[in-house]
Amino acid sequence: MKRPSKIKLIAWVASILPAGWFIINYALGAYNPYPTLFLTQFAGKTAIVFLLLSLACTPLRNIFSCSSLNQPRKVFGLASFYYALAHALTFLVLDYHLKWNWLLPEFQNKPYLLLGLAALLLLLVLALTSIRSFQKRTADLWIKIHRWVYPTTLLVLIHQYFAIKGDKRTAILYLVIFGILMILRVPFIKSKVRIKREDSFQKINRWLLS
């Protein structure tokens, strides 16, 4: 196997760091007496951050003309899926012990839970179809499927907005960031925000790709 580029290594390490941080703090008892609560929120929030990071790759590549910045897209996307899965499993298994007599009514009377579930299933499809061979065999279909990431992100952010109690500023901030990342994809704006090619950037770019 070919040695992965530096930018990919950095992305991998970055996606493992939050889990490591949580495990160390958990071992130190920092989330007692109710670690389930903290794990649910931490995993959910981390999933959102990686989803937005994944969506930020393409606009950043465009702005800085650095092809390397597009490479962590898949790693961040997969990280988002894994954290979302941990978030959902914490809720279903650690919190509710898979007791359906409690869980089913919750899904019936809380639409935001259904939004979260739908988003998780969409992320699962994106994760499963992210393997290279699938992408190569079905280029057109792959592009179509992976455009679902935009509505999926919107579902996730609405889910979070309704899950937060009281102070919604973080949820609104994420929605604003998502909005900016979408606007940066509009062709007219895309051409305006590109900054001048700098040699120093290209040097960093080559290093990241190596």
Binding site: P33, Y34, T36, L37, D95, Y96, H97, K99, W102, P105, E106, N109, K110, Y112, F162, A163, K165
Partner: peptide, 19 residues
Amino acid sequence: VPHPRWSQASEQRIGESGR
């Protein structure tokens, strides 16, 4: 009477394992 966010049918007693 359900709450839009949290379960009011079950609860986590702090210090216990299940709800």
